[in-house]
């Protein structure tokens, strides 16, 4: 996968998940959902099964980060599969409770 730009959208090859890149480190990233590589949002999904160990699901509106916290994806459509970078699951970024300001 080429360098990721903020705003780029991907979808899962094997479930309904869609994500948007918020931040990403340089270099090739092995991003997967449901165990299969993410594909461009406009591409045809190759299809297939969600791998059993990548089946924790994604939630819309939640942000997912790697351990180094330099990769951040926003889930824009939920699905059955879970997100991972080079095989390591991404973690749900804890939301800070903020008072409504507008």
């Amino acid at each position: 996968m080429a360098a990721l730009k903020a705003g780029t959208r991907f979808k899962s090859a094997v479930c309904d998940t869609q994500v948007m890149v918020i931040a990403a480190p340089d270099g090739d990233l092995e991003l997967t959902c449901g165990g299969a590589p993410l594909v461009d949002v406009t591409a045809d999904a190759p299809g297939g099964e969600v791998a059993p160990d990548h089946k924790n699901g994604t939630q819309i509106g939640k942000r997912y980060v790697n351990e180094a916290a330099d990769l951040e994806l926003l889930c824009t459509k939920p699905g059955e599969g879970s997100l991972a970078l080079a095989g390591t699951p991404l973690a749900l970024k804890e939301a800070k409770a903020l008072p409504s300001s507008d």
Partner: peptide, 15 residues
């Protein structure tokens, strides 16, 4: 767009 989206994502929890 990046400014407005950043503001919303940083200050509002979806739903």
């Amino acid at each position: 767009h990046k400014h407005m989206v950043s503001y919303i994502l940083g200050s509002v929890e979806f739903m």
